[in-house]
């Protein structure tokens, strides 16, 4: 199989370039990450992040044939050759397919991704009804791979100001949580032309999410809550 992979080593290369690789591999039943690891055996200078290799850790998000996804859950047989691999768009490249996720995580931290509850801690745990717990389905599954936010043009243009689909999905995860007491502070912090309203609902995030989540829907629900508390 033929591959074309983005290479950039800031210590030796003046410019990034695409390098071609040939790999003798039967694609049936194999994932893209398997091929990348075999290529790395040929050329160990190729740098890539990966850990769990089963779509849980979110380390190996990259741009595969122009579309963001996780290499470990992308079947090799589904890809057109030459398979073009690039780092996630819109984030600074550290080396080859490894990007600096700091702008992404800075936005994630900005939405305070933890329960805020000033009540005395109960003896056992803070209880939720099954219906309250069900509100978190489709939100808590996010693995923070960054595929959605780096597929979002609004995040490309304003990564320092726009929270991005991943951050907003998590913002709604805590807004929707019956155990959280800071819903108004959270909404206050999002009611901003940049932080929330850069989203124009083009749904690139939904298109690429490897976990099948829907940040656009969550963003719509945040907007709905803002309308409800205003009018």
């Amino acid at each position: 199989m033929r591959f074309s992979i983005y290479r950039y080593n800031p210590e030796t290369d003046a410019q990034p370039y695409m390098q071609d690789y040939e790999l003798d591999i039967a694609p049936a039943g194999k994932m893209l990450l398997d091929a990348i690891l075999l290529i790395k055996e040929q050329d160990e200078s190729l740098s890539v992040r990966r850990s769990c290799r089963e779509g849980v850790c979110g380390s190996d998000a990259m741009n595969i044939n122009g579309r963001n996804g996780l290499a470990c859950v992308t079947p090799l047989a589904s890809l057109k050759q030459p398979i073009t691999l690039r780092p996630l768009p819109g984030l600074p490249v550290i080396r080859d397919l490894i990007v600096d996720m700091e702008p992404f995580f800075r936005q994630y931290r900005s939405i305070k991704p933890y329960l805020i509850n000033d009540d005395p801690e109960p003896e056992i745990e803070r209880l939720q009804s099954p219906a309250e717990r069900a509100e978190l389905d489709g939100l808590y599954e996010c693995i923070l791979c960054g595929a959605c936010s780096t597929a979002c043009p609004s995040f490309w243009w304003n990564p320092d100001k726009f929270v991005g689909p991943a951050g907003l999905l998590q913002a709604y995860r805590f807004i929707a949580d019956s155990r959280d007491q800071a819903i108004n502070e959270r909404l206050d912090h999002l009611e901003d032309p940049y932080r929330l309203f850069r989203c124009h609902g083009i749904m690139s995030c939904v298109e690429v999410c490897p976990k099948g989540l829907n940040p656009t829907e969550a963003i719509g629900k945040i907007k709905g809550l803002l309308v409800k508390r205003t009018v």
Partner: peptide, 15 residues
């Protein structure tokens, strides 16, 4: 430093 919370995005979006 990045400052946010301009509190007018909703009005424009709704408009």
């Amino acid at each position: 430093r990045a400052a946010g919370g301009a509190h007018y995005g909703l009005r424009d979006w709704l408009m």
